[in-house]
Structure formats: structure tokens, C-alpha cells
Design a protein around this nucleic acid. Structure first.
Lengths: 137, 137
DNA sequence: TCTTAATTGCAACTCGTTTGCATGTATCAC
DNA sequence: GTGATACATGCAAACGAGTTGCAATTAAGA
């Protein structure tokens, strides 16, 4: 939780019960969660936090670089902690929606190439896979 | 336009003025467009098509495999023609939102690895880059 | 040309996300 | 510890992207 406190303090922000609880939920999850997912899990744990607060908190955690925002073709955002996790990607089943982590990233070398080709400065990339899990195949 | 007709006919679908116009707009664009973008361009060209029809048509074209759906961290979908274009990826500027095509894909070999690792069958992937274009840097 | 089922437009709706505002509360200075 | 104050929160209301129901329209085959 030290990373949270440090990040918040550096920006003149406060460490609050909702923020701790939300980051905690994210750290416990094996896959990225939507705001609604986070909200539901908080409720299940008897932590009363408004959905709006979840959205706002995810926003600041993202700004602080503590969580990453992921898009998986669902028309919504998901979030996962960055802390203590390797940079990685995901695969999502088109049948059941199951999401699995991929602990690999083939893109380090590619980034330099992209920068040369486009003259953009690359700050981030997203790489997601879509297919069918063994059960849905 | 032959690919459109063929695709539609095969499914008992009809070739209509809105469908032609929408695919035409997409084929002329150098980067993927949102439904609202498509709608705005149709209006500019004096083609009266309801936004709902744009959404429905994009859905059909996507199902037929004639257009690809792209997510670029905006909380909306964009669409681009597949016809006559190589498989490719994008980079989007965090400053101005400018989108450029990347005519490369390093993932062919990776797909096999992902399939082995996850036991999913990979059907598609998305790879997008985010950064700063020369003007915004 | 006629028939019929696919397609469209319009209105209303859903869902994810954001905003305004009054209330609550961490945090800092004392 | 107490108080002041700026940051956070909850609630209600709004917003924007995308969807749905339904009656009117129209493409396409007979």
C-alpha cells in the first residue's frame, strides 16, 4: 500500500477508505475489472462506496500510474493494478468472456521501429487477443 | 463494391443505398471512423441516413467481415474497411487524437505461442500504440 | 408488376461514464 | 487535540455511445 500513499501524497491527494478498498479489490483480482465489477465486489465485502466514487478513484489511480486501463472489445473499460505485476497482455474468449493474462510482450524492439516509422513518441501500447477458450470451442 | 454485394447476397441481405454510401465513406477514409464520424460525413455529402442505420450497417458489415472494429482507448468503437487493405495496426496521439496506420504486424509467430500457452484458439488480436505525434510533443 | 421479407427512420431506451453541488472528512498548522 | 481548509464523497441529474420496438418503406425474386 506504500506505493498508493506515496503516489497520492506527491499530488496533494488523500488516502481514503474508498481508495484503499478499491485498490485492494483490484490487487486481489486475477483479471482486469470494470468499474461496475469493482463496485459489486465492494458491496459483497460490505464496503459502502458509491459507483461514482469508483469511477473517480479509478481515474486518479490511472493518472498516478497505479492502475492500467484495458479495452477488450466490450465497449467498456477494465482496470488492473500495475503494482507488482509485469507488463503483460490479455486474451478474451468470444464465447464466455473469460479473460486470461499473457505473461509475454514481444513489442519492446518493435517500439523503436514504430517510432522511426511514424515519428510519434510511443508511450504505451495495447495488445489484446480474442478467440475461444477450451470450454467454448 | 463486388465484395459488398457478394457478402450481402450470401446471407440473404440487400444492397441498399445507405449500405453502399457507408462502405464508400469508410473506403475513402485514411483512418478508422466512429459511427458518428460516418454519419457526419454522409451528411456532408448530402446523403440522408439515420445514425441508427449507420450503427446497424456497421454491425452487418462487421459480421460479414467487410469492416474491422477498432478500439483506441476512447471509449468508443471505430471502423475501417478490410477490403484491399493489409492487416495492420494503429498509433494514436494522446495530444490531438491523430491516428496513423502502422503497416506492420509482428504477431504471426506469436499467435501460435499464445495458443499453446493459453489453450485458447486465437481468432483475432488488437495491437494499438499510444503516444505523441511530432506536433504535440 | 406484385409480394414479401429485409431495411429504414423515428422515438424511446439502456448502459457506461461524467458533472454539479452540497455534505463529509483527511490532513496540516497551531 | 482542535480548527480550518481543500480534497473527497454521495446523490441526482446529465451525457454520449450504442440498442431496441415498431410502423413505414423498399429491394429483390416470382
Amino acid at each position: 500500500m506504500k506505493h498508493l500513499i506515496a503516489g497520492l501524497r506527491a499530488e496533494g491527494r488523500r488516502l481514503t477508505r474508498p481508495r484503499k478498498a478499491i485498490l485492494d479489490v483490484l490487487e486481489k483480482s486475477k483479471y482486469p475489472l470494470s468499474a461496475a465489477d469493482v463496485h459489486a465486489r465492494l458491496k459483497r465485502e460490505q464496503v459502502a462506496v458509491d459507483l461514482v466514487t469508483v469511477y473517480r478513484t479509478l481515474g486518479v489511480l490511472k493518472e498516478l500510474g497505479l492502475v492500467a486501463q484495458v479495452e477488450l472489445g466490450e465497449g467498456q473499460f477494465r482496470y488492473e493494478t500495475r503494482h507488482g505485476r509485469e507488463h503483460h497482455h490479455h486474451i478474451r474468449c468470444r464465447g464466455c468472456g473469460r479473460i486470461a493474462d499473457l505473461m509475454l510482450c514481444p513489442l519492446k524492439k518493435l517500439t523503436a521501429l514504430v517510432e522511426r516509422e511514424t515519428r510519434f513518441t510511443v508511450e504505451e501500447h495495447s495488445l489484446e487477443f480474442f478467440g475461444w477458450c477450451p470450454k467454448c470451442r
